[in-house]
Amino acid sequence: MTDSKISRRGPGRPRGFDDATVLGAAMRLFWRDGYSGASMPEISAATGLSTSSLYNAYGSKLDLLVAALDHYSDTVLDSFMLGPLAGGAEGLADIDAFLDRLGAAVDVTHPWGCLTVNTIAEFRDPPPAVAARTARYRSQLRQALHAALSRAHGLGEVPADAVDRRADALVPIVVAFNLLVAAQAPASETHDLLAAARSLTHRGLP
């Protein structure tokens, strides 16, 4: 498990609730409303725990955000978004599939973008624990893209000198895409950005 455990209360009697369920509810609230927009009473209502129980289990509201970011990394990024990109068997096809998953976020009724990217946008001067999680996301994103591009080179799809350059260029495009989705920008803009990402993936920088 991730190092969010360091920000939680020490050992005691077993909890009377399911940690994953509570963190999933808090994660979705932070994802939808942001850290500032999600009040402790709202988090209490969403999780079914009293505010005192939340404080006892997770510490401060900021500690709870950090735990929610770790839960998001484990359940959304590793399991669904970046894990298949990093550990796939294909090259460019795996990047195309990743971009397809991003594109599907535009078509939901109320798109939220990416929780970690939203957190990057919300905190101008993030606390160290938050900064560590957002830096981890950018590193994981680049590593996953680099892994897929390396496989693409092994398959003869891209030249060797393109792997680093394309991975470096794709990271800010993915971040910008998620920011536009969260801002509810016109779908034409987000789709155009994904098209640019696909062009860069297959043909490189102009």
Rank of each mutant, 00 (worst) to 15 (best):
G10T: 12
G16Q: 10
F17Q: 10
D18I: 15
D18K: 15
D19W: 14
A20W: 05
G24H: 02
M27R: 09
M27C: 11
L29K: 01
R32K: 13
D33P: 03
S36P: 00
G37R: 13
P41K: 09
E42D: 15
E42W: 06
E42L: 12
S44M: 06
S44L: 07
A45N: 12
S52G: 11
A57M: 09
Y58C: 00
G59S: 08
K61V: 08
K61W: 09
L62F: 07
L65K: 03
V66I: 15
S73Y: 13
S73F: 14
D74V: 14
D74Y: 08
T75S: 15
L77F: 04
D78R: 11
F80R: 11
L82D: 02
A86F: 15
G87Q: 11
G88M: 10
D94Y: 07
I95D: 03
D100M: 00
L102K: 00
A105P: 00
D107C: 00
D107K: 05
V108G: 07
H110A: 14
W112S: 13
G113S: 05
L115A: 09
L115F: 10
L115S: 05
V117F: 05
N118E: 12
R124F: 14
D125I: 12
P126N: 10
A131L: 11
T134H: 01
R136H: 05
Y137G: 02
S139F: 07
S139L: 11
Q140F: 12
R142K: 15
R142E: 12
H146C: 06
